[in-house]
Amino acid sequence: MNQNTSFQVKTILTVLALLSAFPAFARLNVVASLPDLAAIAMAIGGEHVEVFSLAKPQEDPHFVEAKPSLILKLSRADALIEGGAELESGWLPSLLDRCRNTRIASGAPGRISCSQSVRLLEIPTSLDRSKGDIHAAGNPHYLVDPENARRVAKQIGESFEALDPKNVVAYQANLKKFTTDLDTKLAEWAKLMQPLKGRELAAYHNSWLYFAGHFGFKIDIFLEPKPGVPPTPPHLAGVISRMKASGVKVIIVDPYLDRRTAETVAARSGAVVVDVAQFPGGIKGTENDYLKLMDKNVQAIAAALVK
């Protein structure tokens, strides 16, 4: 009887110990708000970090479900990497309010807010919601410019070094490899895109501004009449005639947007729809790999423009 009781106590203690010993491995437990940040964190952290992305690759980054399971992920994180610039403001704050984790509190070393490293564009001079869903801090879709990925990778690397000094060498080597790979790719992409400079594209939502800036495209025509406002027939009629007038041959669409509407517009304006994604995994075969994803985006757009 006595033995039995002590066995029970032991079992309970063991279970409790197992449950509470969450950082059982010395790997840095990293949560990223979005899959592009997660992919870069994986490249920099390598085997020394465990990375989880709150948003899924095909999900609309403005409207991620604030599931309770995500509170748990945040409560156990050593670091949180966020895009910032209000992209996640509809869902991340309520999770953070409840995660009870000071390691990732605002201002803590574990809070890595990447919009700090980049120059944001389209900062509105006035805040007026009659102009649609405009982010007060500027356009938050900045990682589609590969140069911004370099800046963000550097910031993430420095943060990892500060959080986990014993693996500094590995983080620095990984960062070096990432930037070298990026440089190689940038040279390839520049070669491919050079003859296409100045061409005009149409987009569903204004999330490719930084991409256009980097490669020298012009994106002025949007299927959405205003950011976040679904297309209306009169607006689409205007889009079709503008596309015809300026000879726009390509409409780029993210996986979470309405491809069918884009196809209709493409059919009537003699253009083609090109699937692009901001998040690794948004296009099949690019899971957790930022450079592979950008490669697909660049190849697809170049191929469509050359035609």
């Binding site: 095909q58 999900e59 609309d60 409207f63 479900e65 976040g228 679904p230 979470y256």
Partner: peptide
């Protein structure tokens, strides 16, 4: 919620 939900 659909995996490719737009605006939820």
């Amino acid at each position: 919620k659909s995996a490719t939900a737009r605006q939820g």
